[in-house]
Design a protein around this nucleic acid. Structure first.
Ligand code: FES
Ligand code: FES
Lengths: 172, 172
DNA sequence: TTAATAAAAGATAAAAAAATCCTTTATTAA
DNA sequence: TTAATAAAGGATTTTTTTATCTTTTATTAA
């Protein structure tokens, strides 16, 4: 047994991540948190690096960096190389929704396609859950489009919601 | 390029399955369809083999067999070895819901735990999507608990819903 | 009692997703 | 102009999920 604290923390984090894939892939969960975090910093005019983002949202840095690359390519956030560079969001990104974020990372299987895996989702050839799935999907859609990402960031700044666990379950 | 028809059909099926993992794992999608199919057959007092189930729900036989094993262990369906054996459902299984099915295969990360991956989901330490996720989850819960599996099977028998694509997108 | 049948179990293999490592390119401040 | 900085890109590794193959066990009908 390895009692190195750093190892143990990693281990706890790893275990807490097992089978927690409700709706979003690990990658799109990191993407959502990253974008919100970038916005919180952009609201105070600070560019932020991949390293800081990874640390703040408790995600592996290198993997987070890859995701950030994709987000930049999809024009969901901006980036700047070199000293004082980093990732940022500005007016040009203010129309972007979390739905765009998820789509950029996971594709749009969350929003179309049959929930039970039939080749296509349709009223003409509905699977046993089709009509319920359509309803659930409406909820998901509104969850990801109703509030702007900027507003979600403001809520985090106000402390109404948070990007990490503050109740001390991992960081004693 | 391989023009063998069997290969091509497999290929089309494989491709149609790529990135279609909305909410359910591939395994729990097969599980849901399997259980509903078993019920349709049990309603006409027929036990049904893993081979037939796999074929009818368009899932790989061996993988389906593994899933069926798990469902039997979880007492979601019954099984009988030997000639005239197979899988079945009866009165003793009539209280089971699709929620139990999904839980048996995927665990209950779909019903508890933070949708954005925080160590725990709570009102005290809500992630930016918490309140919306709670609503969506209510929808998912009712989708999987409102109708009995037997009723879903009856709807399939009546032709109101279906377990495979009948509109001819794969089987010409 | 035996041959056939079908599920259960175990071991591997293949594919996809998550994560890490290393090199290159752009930027900027000194 | 140069050294330091930080993103971008590429390649690889690890882990998880999906899928297949083989052997064993139970059952039953002949
Ligand atoms: S057909 Fe399955 S969700 Fe629409
Ligand atoms: S805290 Fe994230 S869903 Fe409840």
């Amino acid at each position: 047994m390895n009692f190195d604290p750093a190892f143990l923390l990693n281990e706890v984090t790893r275990i807490s991540r097992i089978k927690s894939s409700f709706m979003f892939s690990q990658a799109s969960k990191y993407a959502i948190k990253s974008v919100i975090y970038v916005w919180t910093k952009s609201l105070e005019d600070r560019k932020v690096g991949a390293k800081e983002i990874g640390a703040e949202i408790e995600a592996p840095e290198a993997f987070t960096a890859k995701i950030l690359q994709q987000l930049v390519r999809a024009k969901i956030i901006g980036s700047q190389k070199g000293p004082n560079g980093g990732f940022y969001a500005d007016e040009s990104h203010s129309k972007i929704t979390l739905k765009d974020v998820v789509r950029a990372i996971d594709g749009d299987h969350l929003f179309s396609g049959c929930g039970l895996g039939l080749p296509k989702c349709s009223e003409k050839n509905p699977c046993p859950l089709h009509f319920e799935i359509v309803k659930v999907r409406k909820g998901i859609d509104s969850m990801l489009t109703t509030k702007s990402i900027r507003l979600l960031a403001v809520e985090v700044i106000k402390g109404e919601t948070q990007l990490t666990d503050l109740t001390g379950s991992v960081e004693s």
